[in-house]
Design a protein around this nucleic acid. Structure first.
Lengths: 134, 134
DNA sequence: TATAATAACAGTAATCGTTACTGATTACAA
DNA sequence: TTGTAATCAGTAACGATTACTGTTATTATA
């Protein structure tokens, strides 16, 4: 039961996400899909983003800015968040899962994985304010 | 300007947090402080938690569960989140900041640090359901 | 010690991201 | 076709957090 039926809205959301590398929020997805399907509901966007991430077809990123970001790239990779402009950028970095063993050394529970992201200042923000006034 | 004035409510919040190692949420803080100051407002709790974390006297943890957790221990340490019961537990783990250099290898921006936490199943939850039925 | 300035308060309303509900529509199997 | 159930659009509800407002309390200074 609960057979998955085709929906052009869901397909459009998936396709849109695949074209973007900037990890858009639900609202950004909504605003863009609306240009193709002007009557799409924000609820539909949320429902399908949740459905797709439950299916493992997209990634839901819960960063520290309070809003969810979505990523069509489900392969193992890490993210950088600029603390000035808030942009989310992919990083080239090999798996750091070796830290799981170290973390579990004196821990009685079972460690399955870690959530890690990096923060700092992105290239563009470094250029736009090259020197600190402190 | 903006001189910090003493407030017994803020002091109580700080003291309460110092007694807890389970990283309570704002609402848990509120419920507990109410036993001492029955008329304290939830807004006051939020305001002071934000103030204290801005001052660096406590830590605000934004995990993936959508609610903020607070920690009186501001020393460098890492956290484990049980995906079954949601409890937040301190980990004994040396700094993993060496991953910052690896992350910055092919990255044009400036990496200041990382946010990392671990997830899995805590000891209590392992014991309460010892075998999977899959 | 008064007193004036203002930080902090309690109470409450507003905000914002997200989820749930409702009745209409659409995909798809029989 | 036609029945059914998944999906939809629209909207209301939700929960965590923040902002506002008029009152109270801390504290510097007279």
């Amino acid at each position: 039961m609960a057979t998955l039926k085709y929906s052009r809205q869901r397909e459009a959301i998936k396709e849109f996400l695949a074209t973007r590398k900037d990890h858009p929020t639900a609202d950004v997805v909504y605003q863009n899909i609306r240009e193709i399907y002007p009557h799409i509901s924000l609820g539909t966007v949320y429902r399908n983003l949740t459905l797709l991430s439950d299916l493992g077809e997209i990634l839901r990123l819960r960063l520290s800015d309070g809003v969810d970001h979505f990523d069509a790239d489900t392969s193992l990779h890490y993210h950088f968040i600029c603390k000035d402009c808030g942009s989310v950028i992919d990083l080239e970095l090999d798996s750091i899962d070796h830290i799981n063993a170290a973390a579990g050394r004196n821990f009685p529970g079972q460690i399955d994985g870690n959530v890690t992201y990096f923060y700092g200042t992105c290239k563009d923000c470094l250029l736009s304010k090259p020197m600190e006034t402190s």
